[in-house]
Simulated assay, not measured.
Amino acid sequence: MVEAAAQDDERRLAWVYLSRVVEGPCAALSALIESVGVVEAARAVRECELPESLRGPTALRRESDCAARDMDSIRRMGGRVVTPDDPEWPAWRMLGLAQLEAGRDRDGAVPLVLWVRGPGSLLAWSERAVAVVGARCSTGYGDQVAGEIAGDLATQGWTIVSGAAFGIDVMAHRAALAVGGATIAVLACGVDRPYPAQHERLLDEIADAGLVVSEYPPGTVARKHQFLARNRLIAALADGVLVVEAGLRSGARNTVKWARRLGRPALAVPGPVTSAASVGCHRMIRDGEAVLVTRAEEVIDEAGPLRLSLPGAAGRTADPTDTLIGDSAAIYAALPAIGSRLPVALAEQTTLPLSVVRACLTELELAGLIGTGDTGWYRIRRPG
C-alpha cells in the first residue's frame, strides 16, 4: 500500500515537473510520455537524453524542478492538479485532441495536466457543456443575447464554458452564476493570476461555485500565443461552440476552428447587418463554418446528445440515427450497411479532414451506433 502511494506521488510529481518545463502543449513531449511513461520521460528530460525535437522546447527550464513548490502553491489556494492518471481527468473530451494530426498545429496536443480551482468535478461538469465566446468589445445587443442564451442553457443543466475575457465571455459566466448553474473559466495563465485583472472578483466567484481551469502552472503570466492554445481547451471541454458577436478577425473564430477540427458543432448568432461586431458571425454562417442559432433550444438541437426517442412517435421505435447532423451524419452515411471502412477511406469518401473523421467516429461509438474491428469501423445492427 505504501509502495503504491509512493509510486502515485512519483508519477504526479513527474507530470507536474514536465508541465512546468514546457508550459503549454508540446506534441513531441506527449509522444515521449506515450512511448516510455511519464516517470521515464521526466528522467530523460532532466538528463537531456532526448531526441532533437525535444531539446529546444525543454532547454530553458529542465534544470529547475519546481514540482513540489507548484504542488504546495495549488494546495494553498485550495486548488488541485488533475493528471491523466486521475479519475477526474476528462479523458473522452481529450480524445479529439489526441487524434489531431501531429505536426499540423503546434498547439494541438493534449495538455499534460490541468490546474483546477473550484468544487466541481471537471469530468462531470464537462459531460454536458456548451462553450459561449465572442467579441471583447461587445454591444448591448450581444451582451443581452449572450446572457439570455447562457442563462437558459445553465437553467437546463448545461455547463457554460468560456475564457473569462471582457465582453461576451463575462456575460456568459455571469448569466450561469446568476441562475445557480455550472460554469468553467479556462485561462491562458496560472489559475492564481486573474486575467484580466478587473475580473479577479468574478474569477473568485467562479472558483467558489464553478471551476477555474488552466494547463499553465501557478504563477504563469498570460502571453499572446497562450490564448490561441487555450482556445482548443475551450472547444475540447464542450459539446459545441457558440459565438455571440465576432469581428472579422475575432479570436472567437480561432475557437470555432478548433471546434471544427475536433468534430464539435460550431454555432453563431446573427446580428444587425450594419454592426461591425457581427461581421465575423455573418461570415461564418455564410461560409458554412457555423450554424445560425437564435435561442437556447436551437443550441441544444445542434449540440445536444443523440436522442433515442422522438416526440409523438408512439407506436414505433425511433431510429437514433434520425437525429444525426453535420459531419457525424455524413460519416455514418458513408459506412456501408454490411462491411467496414478505415478512417482514411472515410476521409476520402466524405472529403472531410482525417482528424474530423476520427473525432466523429469516437462520438458515434460512444453513442452505440458503430463499432470497430480489425478491418475498420462498421455500423452496429439494431433489432427491427
Rank of each mutant, 00 (worst) to 15 (best):
E200Y: 01
T255G: 09
A5Y: 13
H225A: 04
A268G: 13
T155M: 13
D9R: 15
S278T: 12
V36R: 13
V132E: 09
P51F: 07
A91M: 09
Y216Q: 02
A222T: 10
S138C: 13
L310W: 11
V279T: 14
T350V: 10
D8H: 11
G157A: 01
G371P: 10
R69Q: 13
E363Q: 14
S250E: 05
L203Y: 04
L202R: 00
E88L: 06
E298M: 10
L267Y: 12
A229M: 04
L242H: 00
A129F: 00
V269L: 12
G147H: 10
P305E: 15
Y141Q: 02
R106E: 10
G247I: 03
G24K: 06
H173D: 06
V213K: 01
G263Y: 13
L211M: 10
E49I: 08
A68S: 14
L211A: 03
P336N: 03
A14C: 11
I285Q: 10
V213T: 02
L346D: 01
I149L: 10
V244K: 02
E205V: 08
R341G: 00
R128H: 13
S340A: 15
V113F: 03
E49V: 05
L237H: 03
Q99Y: 08
T375C: 09
V256W: 07
H282K: 02
R230S: 00
G151M: 06
A91V: 10
Q99M: 15
G147I: 08
A5G: 13
A229W: 02
S275H: 04
W158D: 02
V356L: 12
S30I: 06
D327C: 12
R295E: 15
E205D: 15
E215R: 09
E10T: 12
G312P: 02
G140D: 14
V279I: 15
R69V: 11
C66V: 14
S126R: 00
A345P: 02
V243G: 00
A185M: 10
T83V: 07
R316H: 06
S250Q: 04
V81N: 03
P265T: 12
D301T: 14
G312F: 05
L292F: 12
L361E: 00
R117N: 03
L112Y: 05
A68G: 13
V212Q: 01
R341D: 05
E34N: 11
R20E: 12
G108I: 05
V116A: 07
Q198T: 09
I149D: 07
P265V: 08
L97R: 15
S73F: 08
R61H: 10
T139H: 01
Q226G: 00
C26G: 04
S19R: 07
V2D: 13
C66G: 12
P336Q: 05
L112E: 07
L97T: 11
